[in-house]
Structure formats: C-alpha cells, structure tokens
Design a protein around this nucleic acid. Structure first.
Length: 104
DNA sequence: GCTTTGACTCTCG
DNA sequence: TCGAGAGCCAAAG
C-alpha cells in the first residue's frame, strides 16, 4: 500500500450524497500531506472507481476538477448526488463524511 | 538527485 | 472579507 492507494481507498469509502475534504483524508492517513492527496487524486488510475468529485476543500468550496478550479461540472455532479450547493460551496457541516465515524 | 509545481490549509495583515 | 506568505508531502522535470 502506497500513499496514493490509501487516498483512493478512503475516497472510495465515501458514500453517495456525502463529501470529504483533503484535510480529513490526510488526517485519516495520519499525515499532513493535503497537497499530496490532491496530487494523488489527480493521478488516480481508478478514475471511475474513485469519486474524486466528492473530495472538496476544507472551506466547503469545490476546489479543482478536470484541471480547473471551481469547476461547475463538479458542482452539478454533487447536486445530482443530492447535496446542496450554496454559492459554489457545499454545506460542510451537513454533508461532511468522517472516516472515524464509519469505524465507530 | 535536486528543484519546481500542485485538484491544499492555516495564519498574519 | 480579501490578499499575501509559510508549511506540508508527493510527483514531475
């Protein structure tokens, strides 16, 4: 298991209608490589398997997608997932997914 | 092998 | 609230 594989594994664990942040993923991996998480997702070989569009910034903004920032396409996908997008931002407190919660 | 960049985040001003 | 700077890890050049 490499660093990127952990990122992809956690991203795949995100249920539909939920989102997570790069910081949470990095924290779940017990590291501070927020940027490495984004780098790994960008390079993910499991493109359709890894819902990278469910991974957003810690401030609730969409972040990047398809190589551009604040991609409306990502917002559309999240809205179709059942999330509420306000001002190009997701309700973190409402749709955030905690990996620790899944462990219980 | 070292340097630069990047789908990030936090802090200071 | 917005803007700039520093910190973090990994991949690419």
């Amino acid at each position: 298991m490499g660093f990127n594989e952990n990122v992809w594994a956690l991203t795949k664990k995100i249920p539909k209608g939920k989102v997570t942040t790069y910081k949470e993923i990095a924290k779940a991996l017990n590291t501070k490589a927020y940027r490495a998480v984004g780098t790994a997702l960008k390079k993910n070989p499991y493109a359709p398997q890894v819902p990278c569009h469910r991974v957003i910034n810690s401030n609730g903004s969409i972040g990047g997608y398809k190589g551009k920032m604040n991609s409306k396409e990502k917002i559309r996908l999240l809205k179709k997932e059942g999330l509420e997008i306000k001002n190009d931002k997701v309700n973190l407190k409402r749709y955030i997914y905690n990996f620790s919660s899944s462990k219980r």
